[in-house]
Amino acid sequence: MESAISRRKSDDEELFIGTAESEHVEMYLKAIWYIREKGEEVKVSSIAKLLNVTQPSVVQMLRKLDASKLVNYGKGSVALTDEGDRIGKQMIRNTRLLEVLMKDALKIEIDEEMVCGIEHHMKNIFTDALCTLLKHPRQCPHGHDIPRGRCCSNT
Rank of each mutant, 00 (worst) to 15 (best):
G88H: 03
G143R: 07
G143T: 08
L133C: 11
I118M: 15
L80Y: 00
R86F: 11
E119G: 00
L70I: 03
G88D: 08
H142G: 07
R63A: 05
R96Y: 10
G74E: 13
Q55D: 15
G74H: 13
A105I: 05
V78R: 02
G149F: 06
H120S: 13
L80P: 02
K89A: 11
D85S: 12
I92N: 10
A79C: 03
D104S: 13
R63W: 01
H142C: 13
P56W: 11
Y73A: 03
I110H: 01
V78W: 01
E109I: 10
K123T: 14
K75W: 10
L130R: 04
T132I: 11
F126H: 15
S57M: 07
R96L: 03
I108L: 07
L106H: 05
D66Y: 03
A67I: 03
I92S: 13
L65W: 02
L70V: 05
C131R: 12
D82Q: 08
V115W: 03
G74N: 13
M102K: 08
E119I: 12
K135W: 02
G117K: 11
M102V: 06
N72P: 00
I87N: 01
Q139K: 15
N72Y: 13
L133V: 11
T54P: 00
K107M: 09
E112T: 12
Q60I: 03
K89N: 09
L130A: 09
M122N: 02
L70T: 02
M114W: 14
V71N: 02
D85W: 11
Q60P: 00
S57E: 09
L134H: 07
Q60S: 13
H142K: 15
K103F: 11
T127L: 14
R138Q: 15
E112G: 00
M61V: 07
R96E: 07
R138Y: 01
S57G: 02
G84H: 07
G149K: 10
I92G: 05
G76D: 09
I146A: 13
N72F: 09
P137R: 10
L70W: 03
N124M: 14
K103I: 00
C131W: 04
I108E: 12
F126D: 12
R93G: 08
V71C: 04
P56F: 07
R148E: 14
D111P: 07
N72K: 14
G76R: 15
V71S: 02
E109C: 01
D128M: 11
T95G: 04
P147V: 08
C131L: 06
N94D: 14
I92W: 04
S77Y: 12
M91P: 00
E83Y: 06
E113R: 07
L133P: 04
K64F: 03
L70D: 00
D66W: 00
S57Y: 12
